[in-house]
Design a protein around this nucleic acid. Structure first.
Lengths: 325, 325
DNA sequence: TCCTAGGTCTTGAACGATCAAATTCTGATA
DNA sequence: TATCAGAATTTGATCGTTCAAGACCTAGGA
């Protein structure tokens, strides 16, 4: 199999290189008859644009990068996994490819941006795990590198486009579901104040249930969840249901309830494998859609047809009902 | 910030383009003094090789591709996730980058190979989820595209290099641990015969325990695991311990044992998040090492210093002890 | 008939690196 | 001192594409 270049196609179709290029990139400037002839030649020869050559001329690689993190806490690991799958799919449909990288911390990540941009001419980045005082967004913005974050810019103005899950709506839904099921005292088991995601999840419960509920805050994890739940459940007026900020905490709560022999409904968050395995009712994030929206926003930015004001997308999660609530 | 090319560096160091190129690619042909001068210029200017330009000349992209699958069964999803992280790390250290793609089935994946090879000049592929009669390996081999599989070529001769986990050794270890703990009747809960991985896991148990044990085969999943375990545990001579082919099955077995009120030790496989969460003893795959070895084999292939005979690597898993055994 | 405008197509140069061949430098030998 | 081999360095061409500019054709108006 010989190498098929744009020149091969041009010869076959009896036109010049540039005409073939025009058929591919700006078809409307080529006469219909010629266009068809070139298209036939392309399929007959199985021609495909050589990205490296195109990139050298245009400076664009049709490559976007995203960081892959180790499954930190174990339970919540697969969330990113599902997002990645969705992003790869969406990127493929839009004619882009996804490149992975790892980084130890924010500064390491910024160094990687620098390297990826100058060595590979990356077109854009998708950032995950945004947090307060995130240095990554300002670095990218200062160099006007296109990017989108999955996760809103906590504590900063909306100077870039982002996609996020409406965490508060998720816990509010869960709480309303429990209220409708007749629960009178619904508690919340969450993380210490300060993390944007955690605060939002608490806020949703608070909004739906009002200022009366009991709540506890602890670091994430099954063990600490069990400890915190135990103290809530041995109160004078123990809750009959618990909304939790994660499936890990929820699992801990379930263990505490079983130990104490009390019947307490439990709802988790993230709809992880653990929830599916043990029948835990949980709030599920629409990760595939989030990924698709991220890609959509990036495509807008890269095509230069993005509105001057950043777009923000907030997706509602859904409650997956199982045995525990 | 001006664009820094090899010509910029050459000018700064007072040498020609080619000498700079030699410092980068074949340093030993450059006189030490010159080499140092060029290296200084490179760091001062922050020069980085433009991959697209290099690729156009050499035909090599320093990019390897791997397929990302949706977390199929939920529980086992994170296995690939951890492998991917390890691969990205290892690739980065070796000067390569990882590109992702998705595919609906083997033929779709082969079409993607074709596209990635001609459009992006991919250097190599890492295949996961190998199976009997896998058409992907022969397609790649026929075009002499470098690749390594994570998973041995089930039922086919070793015509390419591969890395795999010694599944049999894992279940054998688990079984020996149970024997040492005093268990006399150790059962096995696995999948129907025919899948290479499943058969190997059964074989390891069989090897360590001999031909006397009871076993059951069922499709993967918590529910089916519970059903199968229930029938084993209500036997005339119920096992006092169960070695399982997956954490899903193990979780099912635990549920069955709890229901029946019998005390049965359980060992799972894959050390997934679920195992960590519920304290399930499980066989853990050394995924980061597997990924690193895959990358090592690929690097050999790509540098042309691979032995003429394919290399095969079989890594022993390790038993993670928790409460259930 | 001539000129012009617009549509269509072609030509030469350029992107930034490496290859292959030519050239210059160096030091040892006769 | 002249010669020469080998090391060190430079020069010109090239990879496959797109940009910018020019050439050609056709139709319509003066």
């Amino acid at each position: 199999m010989e190498k098929v270049t744009i020149a091969t196609v041009a010869q076959r179709a009896g036109v010049s290189r540039q005409t073939v290029s025009n058929v591919i990139n700006t078809p409307d400037v080529v006469r219909e008859e010629t266009r068809e002839r070139v298209r036939e030649a392309i399929t007959e020869l199985g021609y495909r644009v050589n990205q490296a050559a195109r990139q050298m001329r245009t400076g664009r690689s049709r490559l976007i990068a995203v960081r892959i993190e180790p499954a930190r806490d174990g339970i919540n690991g697969s969330v990113l996994d599902r997002f990645l799958h969705g992003l790869t799919d969406a990127a493929g449909l839009a004619g882009y490819r996804v490149m992975l990288y790892t980084a130890a911390d924010d500064n390491d990540e910024i160094a990687t941006y620098d390297e990826l941009l100058s060595a590979y001419d990356l077109d854009a980045f998708v950032l995950t795990s945004t947090h307060h005082g995130d240095p990554r967004t300002s670095w990218l913005a200062a160099r006007s590198v296109p990017f989108v974050t999955f996760g809103r810019p906590w504590g900063a103005p909306d100077t870039h486009s982002w996609v996020d899950i409406d965490n508060a709506a998720g816990t509010a839904d869960a709480t309303r579901h429990l209220l409708a099921a007749g629960h009178q005292r619904i508690g919340f088991l969450g993380w210490p104040a300060g993390s944007g995601v955690g605060d939002a999840r608490r806020e949703g419960w608070h909004r739906a249930f009002g200022p009366w509920g009991v709540s506890a805050a602890t670091t994430d994890g099954v063990e600490s969840g069990a400890v915190a739940a135990r103290s809530l459940l041995t109160n004078d007026e123990p809750p009959s249901a618990l909304v939790c900020a994660s499936d890990s905490l929820a699992l801990g709560a379930l263990q505490a309830a079983r130990e104490l022999g009390c019947d307490c409904a439990v709802v988790g968050f993230d709809d992880t494998a653990v929830a599916q395995a043990i029948g835990l009712t949980s709030v599920s994030q629409p990760l595939a859609e989030a990924a698709a929206r991220c890609m959509g926003l990036l495509a807008e930015l890269l095509d230069g047809r993005a509105p001057s004001v950043p777009t923000t997308v907030l997706l509602p999660p859904s409650l997956v009902l199982r045995q525990t609530a």
